[in-house]
């Protein structure tokens, strides 16, 4: 028992496959999530998220029209996005490290490679609740910090930039 009040969450599930959406929604409802919203592609998700302002978004990568990757970029950078900080969990059949990097570079917080397992979905949800990463804004990127681990032992020069500012 973790004591999470999942019933307070509103989750948007984006996948072009209706059966996969049903499976994801079933898992979320079993966790206790009361409010789930579904979208079958990136375009509909964009409309839906502006209407519903979800707390978390689970999104597929490859969809007709706007892909999950494009949607992630749009959520992070479009001024019309209601919440550019909303946690994004990418759920995809892609499994290579290249794809994980691409998702990360689009501003995705967490990555789930199919097959979908309830424990993995829970683990990623807990991760975005308990271990949110700081956000980074550069001229070419806005989204969660792409460095997974803080390296307190590192004693070399700052590698990100000479002019980094940390905002409280």
């Amino acid at each position: 028992m973790s004591g999470y009040r999942f019933e307070r969450l509103k989750v948007l599930a984006v996948d072009d496959n209706a059966h996969m959406r049903k499976l994801v929604v079933t898992i979320l409802e079993a966790f206790g999530v009361h409010e789930t919203v579904e979208a079958e592609n990136g375009d509909r998700a964009w409309t839906s998220l502006r209407e519903n302002n979800p707390d978390v978004i689970l999104l597929d990568w490859m969809m007709p029209g706007m892909s999950g990757l494009d949607l992630a970029r749009m959520i992070r950078t479009n001024p019309l996005a209601p919440n550019p900080f909303v946690p994004l969990i990418m759920l995809t059949g892609y499994t290579s490290i290249d794809h994980v990097r691409q998702a990360r570079d689009a501003g995705v917080n967490e990555f789930i490679a199919k097959p979908v397992a309830a424990k993995t979905v829970m683990s990623r949800l807990v991760s975005v609740i308990e271990h949110p990463r700081p956000f980074v804004r550069t001229s070419v990127y806005f989204g969660p910090c792409r460095r997974r681990r803080a390296n307190d032992e590192y004693r070399g020069p700052e590698r990100r930039t000479e002019t980094e500012q940390v905002v409280e």
Binding site: F135, T138, R160, E164
Partner: peptide, 10 residues
């Protein structure tokens, strides 16, 4: 870089 990098915790 032309623009400083901003790091913050929402």
């Amino acid at each position: 870089r032309q623009q400083p990098i901003e790091l913050f915790m929402p």
